[in-house]
Nucleic acid binder design. Structure first.
Length: 109
DNA sequence: GTTATGACTGCGA
DNA sequence: TTCGCAGCCATAA
């Protein structure tokens, strides 16, 4: 049994994010059934590093497409570097053309 | 066991 | 349009 099915589901969804795509905490939370539990999604990603498996948390941003959790990568540049590495344009810690790169789990899963 | 905080979002004024 | 508040769940102290 899981003490936090929510976390595992979050990890799973984040791992399903295709290359060069991004999603939001709210989209994931809403997909899981809790639209306002977006904070837990963020918490899950924070723990994702502890999870033992690498989670493309850099592909998960807030509703504004802002890299809110970049500092959690250790160095603030890491998240931006990863995004740019995937072809995602990031300007001032914000994703460009976020609406185009936005990947909704509810529409793909 | 209780309290406080956290990578958020949506709605009201 | 901008600012402020409430809600949700889990973890940490």
């Amino acid at each position: 049994m899981k003490e936090s099915d929510f976390f595992e589901r979050v990890y799973e969804v984040v791992r399903q994010i295709p290359y060069g795509r991004v999603t939001t905490y709210g989209a994931i939370a809403r997909y899981l059934g809790s639209g306002r539990s977006a904070r837990i999604v963020g918490w899950a990603l924070n723990q994702s590093f502890r999870s033992g498996s690498f989670i493309p948390a850099h592909r998960v941003v807030n509703r504004q497409g802002l890299l809110t959790g970049k500092h959690n990568f250790g160095f603030q540049d890491t998240m931006k570097q990863l995004l740019e590495s995937e072809g995602i344009e990031v300007d001032h810690d914000k994703i460009i053309r976020f609406d185009e790169l936005f990947w909704d789990p509810a529409e793909n899963l």
